[in-house]
Design a protein around this nucleic acid. Structure first.
Lengths: 195, 195
DNA sequence: CCAAAATGGAACACTTCTGCCCCAAAAAAT
DNA sequence: ATTTTTTGGGGCAGAAGTGTTCCATTTTGG
């Protein structure tokens, strides 16, 4: 009896959490194309009524906040999956890029909607950035990454290369080719100058 | 008598053209920060009444169109000033970057408001892109630019490096240091791999 | 100084989006 | 099978932005 009461509301029901995810994903997709899209547009894309959207996210700002959170979590998960402490720094950075490349639509949205990343949780270094910094510092020590390039600049570049690659796919290039170009460019960039 | 009539409306009066410029510049600045800014915001930033904005640009879309045109012209002017046929391809590309870097706020806006570059005039290669392509092709012939990197990819990268550099300044870095990093990164990127 | 050009301010109707409410229907859980 | 959960649709009031008009005022140019 007690168990029932306690467990009943501990987590969201699967139905609700699936619906919530669907709305967030749809929002990312739609807002990526038109950052001024209305909640109706998002609801349609999610295959849900506008009423339902409001049930999950009372105000538009709440939805945006949720998108922001979701993005951070997905970035963190990608960084984790990249298993950065294995192999050379260059290889680790490669794997990180490959993981983050999968999140292209999120990257696209964050670039085209800078308002989203003005929250306090973006002020401090997020998990992906922290992961990048660690790899770059390791690369510096191991002599695999140009010392002229600060970790923050490398991070900036990585995000932009990912963005560029993703845009390249939107222009018709294959995902594989785009990712290849992205990694090739990154390699040349970070390789220390031969002297 | 005839001459007066003919010349009177051949061009806009200096007053009008100055006001028009002020509105466009203000719009670029304001929309770069918040792409959903209202016409009132833009009018305020331009030091002009909303009525006046409407006098110059009947609809919001007309203002956006004007911004788009203005951007194209400024890019073209930058490409022209870069004097691309002088010196090595790498040097020419450097100069082009330096010119375009001056247009940071425009680049910022175009990246954060992709809707702006969906017009037909952006479909075809614009002057800056064409200029880049020519330089890259020259670099390929002269062996100064990695043949693996297609002109379109180099162009994509250049825009992103410029954008990254401009964002870097928004994060507190000096313009000079940002530009230096941008050019340094570009050099490493385009230099053919030593084999 | 005078006429024309350019601007500012206020008001107006119109549209769109938003946030909220209620109730009936559908889906899921027990 | 029935009870709870979740959803859809409709309506409604309020906010905000837009496009337009009219008139008074300022600025410009001759």
């Amino acid at each position: 009896m007690f168990r029932m009461v306690v467990e009943r509301r501990r987590l969201e029901s699967r139905v609700r959490s699936r619906t919530r995810q669907a709305i967030i994903r749809a929002a990312v997709e739609v807002l990526g194309v038109d950052s001024a899209a209305s909640l109706s547009d998002i609801a349609d894309a999610a295959g849900v009524s506008r009423t339902t959207v409001h049930r999950y996210f009372a105000e538009r700002a709440d939805l945006l906040e949720a998108i922001s959170q979701d993005a951070l979590e997905r970035f963190a998960l990608g960084a984790e999956r990249a298993d950065l402490d294995t192999g050379s720094a260059a290889e680790a950075l490669d794997r990180l890029c490959q993981e983050l490349f999968e999140l292209g639509d999120v990257v696209l949205l964050l670039f085209s909607e800078p308002q989203l990343i003005t929250g306090s949780e973006w002020e401090e270094e997020n998990d992906a950035d922290r992961a990048m910094r660690r790899v770059v510092e390791r690369g510096h020590r191991e002599g695999a990454i140009d010392q002229e390039l600060s970790p923050s600049w490398v991070a900036e570049i990585v995000w932009h290369l990912l963005y560029a690659a993703w845009r390249h796919t939107k222009d018709g290039a294959s995902k594989h080719e785009s990712l290849r170009l992205c990694l090739h460019s990154l390699h040349k960039l970070i390789t220390p100058a031969t002297r």
